[in-house]
Simulated scan of single mutants.
Amino acid sequence: MKKEELIQILMRISSGEASDEDIHLYNNWCNSFQGKSKSIDDFEQIKANMLMEIEKQTHYQTRTSQTRLLPRIGIAAASIIIILLVGSYIYLHSGKQSETPRMAIKDVAPGGNKAILTLGNGQTISLDSIHNGQLAALAGSNISKPQNGLLVYSAENNNSEAVQYNTLSTPRGGQYKLVLPDGTKVWLNAASSIKYPTTFKGTNRAVTITGEAYFEVIHNAQKPFRVTVKNQTIEDIGTEFDVNAYGDEAVIKTTLLQGSVRVMKGNSFVVLQPGQQAIVSDNSDDINIQEVNASNKAAWINGFVSLDKVGVKEFMNQLSRWYNVDIEYTGTIPNKKYGGLINRNSNLSDVLFALKASGINTRLEGNKIIVLPN
């Protein structure tokens, strides 16, 4: 099949307009890798080249001019995107092909803008139910919700020495964006929290997080910005970075997109450069560094779930948090790796159908995904 023809098929698949013949040709293309002894690197390069071609023919969305552009893919495309970039990967290694017809299953909607704001006096505000506008005036800041999904602290002159701390928390199936009093922007992923002062006093700006958060820090060399997570500290040196520290993951991952950060634990520290990720476990002060596709690691702030060579369990943990469902395994966890992007606006049925087409069998029972033996 010519590259141009394949790209047009993928475009129709992504828009939900693919015919049975398109799907058949696509499956044949996947299977063509089986007998050619192509390496993982060969496949990854082909996949990257195809993505670049598709990106040229689609609309784009971007957060800043420096970050990698991501394709604006329709909601209907989600299941096919996972088949394209996950299914092909599985076909390549397992030799399995699935053309199982889609079965009707109970659906679960994706997460959305949901969060609870806890003030210093213990008062709680449900941000997804309260009207837009000013919420409160505290020592050093005015708090407002200018639009759904965004909480903004506006600094004001304050001579008081008292510092109040607020906490923003997202449930499973929630996300929220926060602008701190110094202008630093924070994206909070599902099942996460950030504790911060309503005004930054003293010689540094310190916040504490759980779960996952992405930071665009307003740099100030005289007042460094520090993120504390468990027993680890990340200090910005003019920076955009992502911190993933969920309790159900074995390690804490700090990924740098721009600038520089210092990651510290115990007596150890490293300084990351863009495109690097620091990996730290709970039971060690060792800090390991690996090169990664940093934009993929932070794809969730642009509305995508990134599958960057992740295993089934890590992927299922992401589904659990975003769709607010539990996960149960009924046998050995499949030893397969994933790659690509999934639109976070997709219903769960699209994702589970794509998993089935890719050889991962699941069953949805109430609020639980049961991963079945192959």
Rank of each mutant, 00 (worst) to 15 (best):
K145L: 12
S306A: 14
T58K: 14
L352N: 11
R68F: 04
G173C: 07
D350S: 15
Q290R: 13
I73Q: 00
Q277I: 00
D107Y: 04
G149I: 01
S306W: 06
T233Q: 13
L150D: 00
Q45R: 13
L256M: 00
L168K: 08
K56W: 00
T362W: 09
P181M: 08
A245F: 02
K356S: 12
A137V: 15
V86N: 12
K201Q: 14
F43V: 14
P274H: 03
T62A: 11
S39Y: 00
M50N: 14
G266K: 02
Q276W: 01
K223M: 09
N343Y: 04
K38C: 08
I83T: 13
N159M: 01
I289D: 01
D236H: 01
E5T: 09
D350W: 02
I81K: 14
L257G: 09
G74V: 08
E21Q: 11
D128Q: 15
N244R: 07
H24A: 11
K336A: 00
K253M: 03
G339L: 13
R72L: 15
S141V: 00
S281T: 10
G183I: 02
I327D: 06
V186N: 04
I82Y: 11
K337L: 11
A221S: 14
S98G: 04
D286L: 10
P197S: 08
N283V: 05
I369F: 05
Q164H: 12
N132W: 01
S94R: 10
K368Q: 15
Q258A: 13
I75R: 14
Y196M: 05
G211Y: 01
E161Q: 15
A213G: 10
A76M: 06
N293E: 14
A18E: 15
M11P: 00
N244I: 08
Q61C: 09
L257A: 12
Q290P: 05
K195A: 01
L151R: 04
A109Q: 14
L85T: 15
D282R: 12
I237K: 08
L178Q: 07
I287F: 11
W300K: 11
K309M: 03
V305R: 13
A213L: 01
R321P: 01
E240G: 05
I360N: 02
T362M: 12
G95Q: 01
Q147N: 07
T255M: 05
W300C: 08
I342V: 15
V261F: 07
D242M: 02
F315A: 03
A354D: 11
E21K: 09
L117P: 10
S14G: 03
V217N: 02
P71D: 02
K38N: 13
Y89Q: 15
I301L: 04
N231W: 03
P274Y: 06
N27I: 12
I105C: 06
L25C: 07
L178C: 02
D286H: 12
I143P: 06
E17M: 05
Q258F: 03
G74S: 11
V310E: 03
P334L: 04
S129P: 00
I46S: 09
